[in-house]
Design a protein around this nucleic acid. Structure first.
Length: 353
DNA sequence: AACAACCTCAACCGCAGAGTA
DNA sequence: ATACTCTGCGGTTGAGGTTGT
């Protein structure tokens, strides 16, 4: 038989709340508590439905709601939690006190999503996007970072320009490797994957201190974990390890607030890993270091896109373009590594075609 | 200065799951 | 077992603000 049908709500007010309505709602809840949302508007003298009252309270009027722009730490936490939880905004919100699920959802859709796309990362999977168009979107970033001294805004004492260069290269390399894996042009395995045995240190090896889970990019070789036996891909980054550490470029970790939160995040991480390959790939948010996006950047990007429209980019010349971008660098040592990689990939690609 | 394009975010909508009569 | 309510969630919308031309 059920309950009596709900009252006619067709005449209730919709749209933005007036200050008077806010005051009535706050006044009522402070005096009587929430009660049931359905009956609250009637008791509070509001011509709104309960759902609207609940939303207004939860997302705007509740006293402990934090105002203002999200911090970089909060942003990084959202990215990391999203890589584990997906679009579970309410779950993500529980790790950010004072932030609502609606606010986090909005911030993701308007800001973080775009950042990830510009970094060549699929915001849904947190993995590198693997078609050539997406790959080509990374070149403006490389071009910008290689401009070096001509762009004073990118050169600073903390080596931001160098960071951007390395990040961009790292991203391109990951895209290249994944692209070639997917297209079967060349059998390039994950450097930490030998005979389906993952050599990357397990996640909790990165536990740093008592309550911070450090998530590093798996392509970043730590000197403590040298090349896997029989793997002929050079250890690209070991020589710059200390530089990266000092600049905290890989410090993007999941901030664990308490023991239960840590267990929750960790268990989610473990549950979603259908394979350890997935585990490695799900650590990709560490790549998303803060990347200043300036007007200059936008102009360079649009210039680049315009140039792209007027030129054909067959697969062979794409490799040439990569070579030009990646090897044309001040650092001769790292350049030789890139050349080695490109020689390997282009040789293999041509042997297939 | 005027207009267009883009961005942000509060609020709405529809749905699902749990609870209730 | 069924029909209904309540609550919360995630996706979407659109008004107002901002930026670019």
């Amino acid at each position: 038989m059920g309950r009596s049908p709900s009252s006619n709500e067709s005449n209730v007010k919709k749209g933005p709340w007036s200050p008077e309505e806010d005051e009535r709602l706050m006044d009522y809840i402070s005096k009587h508590g929430r009660g049931t949302w359905r009956t609250l508007p009637k008791h509070a003298g509001l011509n709104r439905n309960g759902k609207s009252c609940r939303l207004r309270w939860e997302n705007y009027l509740k006293p402990d709601i934090k105002r203002g722009k999200l911090t970089e730490e909060e942003e990084q936490l959202i990215i990391n939690l999203h890589s584990v939880l997906g679009n579970k905004w309410s779950k993500i919100a529980t790790s950010l006190p004072g932030r609502t699920d609606n606010e986090i959802k909005n911030y993701w859709n308007t800001t973080i999503r775009k950042k990830l796309l510009h970094m060549g990362i699929d915001p849904e999977t947190h993995r590198p996007r693997t078609n050539l168009n997406h790959l080509m979107n990374l070149f403006p970033l490389l071009g910008m970072s290689n401009l070096g001294t001509s762009m004073s805004s990118w050169t600073n004492p903390t080596g931001l320009q160098a960071d951007v260069t390395q990040l961009a290269k790292l991203q391109v390399l990951q895209n290249m490797l994944q692209l070639m894996n997917n297209t079967s042009l060349i059998n390039v395995t994950n450097p930490y994957l030998v005979d389906n045995q993952i050599l990357n240190p397990p996640l909790d090896t990165f536990l740093n201190g008592r309550n911070t889970l450090q998530v590093r990019d798996p392509m970043f070789r730590d000197p403590e974990y040298p090349n896997p036996p029989g793997n002929n891909i050079p250890n690209l980054f070991s020589q710059t390890h200390s530089d990266y550490s000092q600049q905290n470029i890989f410090k993007s970790g999941i901030e664990i607030e308490n023991e239960s939160n840590y267990q929750e995040v960790l268990s989610y991480t473990q549950n979603i890993n259908t394979s350890q390959q997935n585990q490695v790939e799900n650590l990709l948010p560490a790549l998303v270091a803060s990347c200043p996006r300036t007007t200059t950047f936008n102009k360079m990007e649009s210039n680049y896109n315009a140039a792209q429209k007027s030129t054909q980019s067959p697969f062979s010349t794409t490799f040439e373009a990569w070579e030009k971008f990646l090897i044309d660098d001040d650092d001769d040592t790292s350049g030789s590594y890139w050349k080695e990689i490109l020689d390997l990939t282009s040789t293999s690609a041509s042997s297939v075609s």
